[in-house]
């Protein structure tokens, strides 16, 4: 299997935005041997076959990613610096202001930003910058011969990688907990919603970035579009600060985008403050965005493929 982290050769791949999606692992999906006799899948067993596909691809990824433990750790530890910066700044302010900022104590910030590290990892999916390569090299041609919609191959292999990430994350979280002393008051319900919401976040972001990536079918001058998208996401997702700390108009604006449901919501679901009603709203919004994004992926893919012409892959 090819190395999971794409080497950054400046000549071919545009240096993606520096710290959100640069060097994000580009899945080497679907190199696992797949059954090619599946064109005659009977309808009733289609779901079962798809499930088997997911299981196989995810398992392959788990095995292959554990081979690259060190590389994965470099990546994850480097990523931890960002929330530590925010955490230190905000907990310093909380202490200066006699204990809290807008109701957040230093301990609350610690809980928020430590959970942040896991949610951030769940948010890493196939980068839209990778689509240029997929189209240019003709990799997609091979994909089209496969029995299921190509997105399943991305979803399944990244899902396998996520299991590895969650395991590798536990020691990081333990160290951060010792260092920053989070205050965490949560409930069984909140933990349960969190466990669902991180996968919802993963699904929504995978689908939305697929749509963005597929813009490459029409034009390769996509860098500015992606940068704009990423900055909007950065500001309105709860990544910089908890949503509660944003000015009112920004919080209102965030309702128009999927960002907060993929980042701020899962974190707040676990660490609070959040009511049961808000938990429900969050899950419903995640479901709604998943449905919308899946629909758009379907449409754009169909049209995009018609534009696509390439030699074999």
């Amino acid at each position: 299997m090819r190395c999971f982290f794409v080497a950054r050769s400046a000549a071919t791949s545009p240096p993606a935005s520096r710290w959100f999606d640069r060097g994000e692992p580009v899945a080497d999906v679907g190199r696992a041997p797949m059954s090619s006799t599946a064109e005659a899948w009977p309808v009733e067993s289609r779901w079962r076959s798809l499930l088997a596909t997911y299981r196989t691809l995810a398992r392959t990824q788990v095995l292959s990613q554990f081979q690259y433990r060190a590389a994965n750790y470099f990546y994850m530890v480097g990523m931890v610096a960002e929330p530590i910066v925010y955490l230190v700044v905000w907990s310093t302010i909380a202490r200066q202001q006699g204990g809290s900022v807008d109701g957040y104590t230093a301990g609350n910030f610690a809980a928020y930003y430590i959970t942040w590290t896991l949610v951030r990892n769940m948010n890493i999916v196939f980068t839209p910058f990778g689509w240029e390569d997929r189209i240019r090299t003709g990799e997609l041609s091979g994909w089209m011969l496969r029995p299921a919609h190509p997105i399943h191959y991305d979803l399944a292999s990244f899902m396998g990688w996520k299991f590895v990430v969650i395991v590798l994350w536990l020691p990081i979280a333990a160290v951060l907990t010792l260092l920053f002393r989070p205050e965490l008051q949560t409930s069984v319900l909140q933990v349960a919603v969190f466990a669902v919401a991180i996968w919802g976040a993963y699904l929504i972001r995978s689908l939305v970035l697929w749509v963005l990536g597929m813009v490459t079918f029409w034009t390769t001058r996509v860098a500015a579009l992606y940068e704009t998208y990423f900055v909007a996401e950065l500001l309105l997702s709860g990544r910089l600060v908890p949503m509660d700390l944003l000015p009112g108009w920004a919080q209102g604006l965030a309702w128009a985008f999927p960002f907060r449901w993929t980042f701020g919501f899962p974190i707040t679901a676990l660490v609070g403050p959040i009511s049961n009603g808000e938990l429900l709203v969050g899950l419903v919004m995640q479901a709604a965005w998943t449905a919308v994004a899946a629909f758009v992926v379907r449409i754009v893919w169909r049209r995009g493929v018609r534009r696509y012409g390439a030699v074999g892959g």
């Binding site: 710290w19 470099f74 990546y75 530890v77 610096a81 960002e82």
Partner: peptide, 11 residues
């Protein structure tokens, strides 16, 4: 991947 690490810490 050490560059990822450096970029992260640099922030």
């Amino acid at each position: 991947n050490v560059q990822e690490l450096f970029d992260g810490v640099y922030r």
